[in-house]
């Protein structure tokens, strides 16, 4: 199941709607890197509200996606990490290594706007 990528102003918004396969995630990464260029996006919001499990593999992949986007010139914010998932990540010893996070889509967009204003 591909991840739909929506454009809002100079920001791309992608909601991960279900447990994704590795192939889906890799396709998403490539689509995103492509689309950042074609629409000249400056920011990306990845919404993971629907994910009930984030294991070490998925977290590492998300981090990779955020770094790829950054190398293409777009700052990525991950939003919607559920409370149980957040707690589990801490127990696992996982971090998002500098990838900014926000509570929800609205906060994520606000964070991107603030960062852009500060640049």
């Amino acid at each position: 199941m591909p991840v739909p990528i929506l454009k809002q102003g100079d920001t791309l918004i992608a909601s991960i709607v279900a447990a994704l396969s590795d192939d889906d995630l890799l396709t998403f990464r490539d689509d995103l890197a492509q689309k950042i260029g074609s629409v000249r996006a400056r920011g990306v919001v990845i919404d993971v509200t629907a994910l009930d499990v984030l294991d070490s593999f998925a977290t590492r992949t998300l981090r990779g996606i955020a770094y790829t986007a950054k190398l293409r010139g777009a700052e990525t914010v991950i939003v919607g990490i559920q409370p149980e998932v957040a707690y589990t990540l801490v127990q696992l010893g996982l971090t998002l290594d500098g990838v900014p996070t926000a509570l929800d889509l609205e906060e994520g967009l606000a964070l991107l706007a603030k960062r852009r204003a500060a640049r």
Binding site: D55, F57, Y87, L92
Partner: peptide, 27 residues
């Protein structure tokens, strides 16, 4: 794992911990 944990009365946090541990060993 999550379904069985739910049936057994585990909290939703514990269900997530169990599901994630299963995900790691299954992978």
């Amino acid at each position: 794992g999550r379904q069985l944990a739910g049936k057994l009365g585990f909290s939703s946090t514990d269900q997530t911990l169990i599901a994630t541990a299963i995900s790691e060993v299954a992978r």
